[in-house]
Design a protein around this nucleic acid. Structure first.
Lengths: 198, 198
DNA sequence: TATTTTATTGAGCGCCGCTCAATACCGTGT
DNA sequence: ACACGGTATTGAGCGGCGCTCAATAAAATA
């Protein structure tokens, strides 16, 4: 067998990525398998490993795509010019995570192996979401506290993230339910108020 | 082969659990394997699967042991009657997680499979830590806010957890470092202050 | 001692990630 | 039209995984 005319290299890469993304959404990180992706796109394992040279790199690319979706969803909702933009950020976090739980969890279930750290382009991509949050936080803070916006944004993302993880993995349910999203928003509001936010 | 006199059933169970715990600490969740545990204790895979009837149940038991260690470490530090008990709780969270990162992360990396949910005894065990936090929160809140202590405790655990995860998995480092533990403590303080805490 | 009960084994099954010699195909030069 | 060089693709093979279960060895009992 040799070069097949039905797909260029880029098309094939995209095909695999798309199918991989679908599979991840369907079965979740623990049951994801590169072999299964290969089977579904109708190419052999070897071909797949030629393009993405390890399982780790394939998953990285898939998670990256998830990140893009996430950021896009967030941007779209902010573009509707809502009144309470902070609430929209929190809701966007929870909503995306729960509507795409397998994809979302995969981002955090995937441990990057010992040696390698993630390539620059992914790094930048992941900064995007935090960047959006940072911009919104800055808007809300008084002039003199603006320089703290970045650090505060990261901390608030962590705060919301914590609530969201517990909500999705059932840790909250296990301890007696009170609405995690509302709690997260309350914590965020308190932090912003403490920083002099309006 | 048949019953071996060198270990009673309970002893063997304990032996496997201890060795499994060691292995988890050593290699972490993704590289943990029941086969390897069997090899290390010098019994065959079959025996191991007789006692813990699936990989999932073995890991559950291992994680449970980690939880006990964690709660014990927390209790010990609180028993020294520190001045700032809230800070000790936060520090205890971060310290345990970073000093036992493989064990700690395993707790959250292990997805319990579709059907089964974790047995009552584990459920209770995991409530213990949150219970300790709840007690400390209650002490700090004014009389009229005591009834909110439980809900607030869960939310604050989630808050600290979020910061801790990001600290350990490098999500923070990736975004420009500011001390996650201090940020977590700041968020907790703000929330307590907002609830009228002293 | 003979028989039942019980603990232990490990080869076997179907998966996994990953490799690499063999192979099928394409573009090009003559 | 044909041969050739390069490239894309293959899939059997390797070692390892979780898990099962008929066979077996040892203890308990009769």
């Amino acid at each position: 067998m040799g070069r097949r005319s039905d797909h260029s290299r880029e098309e094939l890469e995209e095909l695999i990525l798309a199918e991989g993304h679908r599979l991840m959404a369907e079965v979740g990180y623990p049951r994801f398998s590169a072999r299964e992706v290969a089977k579904r796109v109708g190419y052999s394992v070897g071909t797949l490993y030629n393009l993405f040279d390890s399982n780790h790199r394939l998953i990285l690319a898939i998670n990256s795509r998830t990140f893009l979706m996430w950021a896009a969803a967030m941007a779209e909702r902010l573009a509707e010019d809502p009144e309470d933009r902070i609430a929209v950020l929190v809701d966007g976090y929870f909503r995306f995570a729960s509507e795409n739980s397998n994809l979302w969890m995969a981002i955090y279930e995937h441990r990057t192996p010992e040696g390698s750290d993630l390539p620059e382009r992914y790094r930048k991509q992941r900064g995007e979401l935090t960047g959006m949050v940072e911009a919104e936080i800055a808007k809300v803070l008084p002039e003199e506290a603006r320089n703290k916006a970045a650090a505060l944004a990261r901390s608030l993302v962590a705060t919301v993230h914590g609530h969201c993880v517990f909500a999705l993995t059932g840790t909250f349910a296990l301890l007696g339910e009170d609405r995690p999203q509302e709690a997260a928003l309350a914590r965020v509001r308190e932090a912003l108020a403490a920083a002099g936010g309006r």
